[in-house]
Design a protein around this nucleic acid. Structure first.
Length: 314
DNA sequence: AATTCTATCAACCGCCAAGTC
DNA sequence: CGACTTGGCGGTTGATAGAAT
């Protein structure tokens, strides 16, 4: 659950992710995609290893993550698939939209494994699966949801938890619908989810996910529209109805979280990086860009690494 | 009320496969 | 072909809350 924060030998932070770290990672991946997990934390202003960032994103922050109780159908699917293919959690997770391999693995070890063993020992299934047995779990999940709500933007948490039990008020209806729709889109492209240009088609991203984290003025860039415009869909389908209010920077604007500046990518006009970002980057203070100009931040394969989207956008 | 036990699950670790040079 | 890098996977750990004693 919660691990005590600590640092490894390289000074990289370990343990529990803070709300601030989540915000930075979410903002960065939402904006730039995950072009290189190893390099990403450096640019996102995170003192984490790439693996940790990837894990956090994949298992917790990624859009359309479904949390909460497992349905009977989901559990039956897990049991059935596990019976046929063993501990291939990632394959099993691919068959359960919104569920992560880590979560399925945990659920198997804490619930389903016991149930299967009991079934093998002829213990009536329904008896063990009674609501009384689930009560502590439900209590815990409620608590976790409350924690999520306090850590994240209250509306953002609903993206993560799309279970009916978490839905309150009329707005939740559209949220669930949006999640369901985007889940379908995700399923269609799941095989190549991370190999595709992240934002050339963001239909798999819940509109809530894109809107909510930035509703808080603290997180909203004055050039929010421009930043996301290259991908079209944001502007046309998602952002337009959002009444965004200005703030300093989409991430945090501090020198400690360098962003790829337009000057680094301007060699090939019309590509991912030279579009709106370079059209007007006057909002970026020089001291914000300076650290990025340092070779420390420049990968020897910078051009290759940072332009995976170029082909898809040309 | 205090202590111990148990269940949960986020996060870490090590390994492996694929890709690149 | 081998070395290296990176992403992904599965096993495991450990902090915490709640239940039991």
């Amino acid at each position: 659950m919660v691990r005590t924060p600590s640092c490894d030998k390289n000074g990289l932070k370990k343990g529990t992710w803070t709300a601030e770290e989540d915000r930075k990672l979410t903002a960065y991946v939402t904006r730039y995609g995950c072009w290189n997990w190893r390099q990403l934390p450096k640019f996102a202003g995170l003192s984490r290893c790439g693996k940790s960032c990837r894990l956090r994103w994949m298992n917790y922050l990624r859009p359309n993550i479904k949390r909460g109780n497992y349905s009977k159908e989901e559990e039956d699917t897990i049991i059935e698939l596990h019976e046929s293919m063993g501990n291939r959690w990632s394959v099993i997770a691919a068959r359960l939209p919104g569920r992560t391999d880590n979560e399925i693995k945990n659920h198997w070890h804490t619930n389903l494994k016991k149930r299967v063993l009991e079934q093998q020992n002829s213990v009536p299934h329904e008896e063990k699966h009674s609501s009384n047995n689930l009560a502590p779990r439900e209590k815990r999940q409620k608590r976790v949801k409350q924690q999520n709500n306090s850590l994240l933007n209250p509306t953002t948490s609903q993206i993560i938890d799309s279970s009916p039990s978490s839905s309150t008020g009329s707005s939740s209806i559209s949220k669930d619908t949006a999640v369901a729709t985007s889940t379908e889109a995700y399923e269609e492209t799941s095989d190549s989810f991370w190999t595709q240009p992240f934002l050339t088609d963001c239909s798999f991203v819940s509109s809530d996910f894109l809107e909510q984290p930035f509703v808080d003025p603290e997180y909203i860039s004055p050039v929010f529209d421009e930043i996301f415009c290259p991908y079209g869909l944001y502007e046309e389908n998602i952002i337009t109805s959002n009444n965004l209010s200005p703030t300093q920077n989409i991430i945090d604007g501090s020198p400690s979280s360098p962003q790829p500046s337009s000057s680094e990518f301007s060699s090939s006009s019309g590509n991912f990086w030279t579009q709106p970002f370079s059209a007007d980057n006057s909002f970026i203070p020089n001291d914000f860009l300076e650290p990025f100009m340092d070779t420390e931040y420049l990968s020897p394969v910078f051009d290759e690494v940072l332009c995976p989207y170029e082909e898809g956008l040309n």
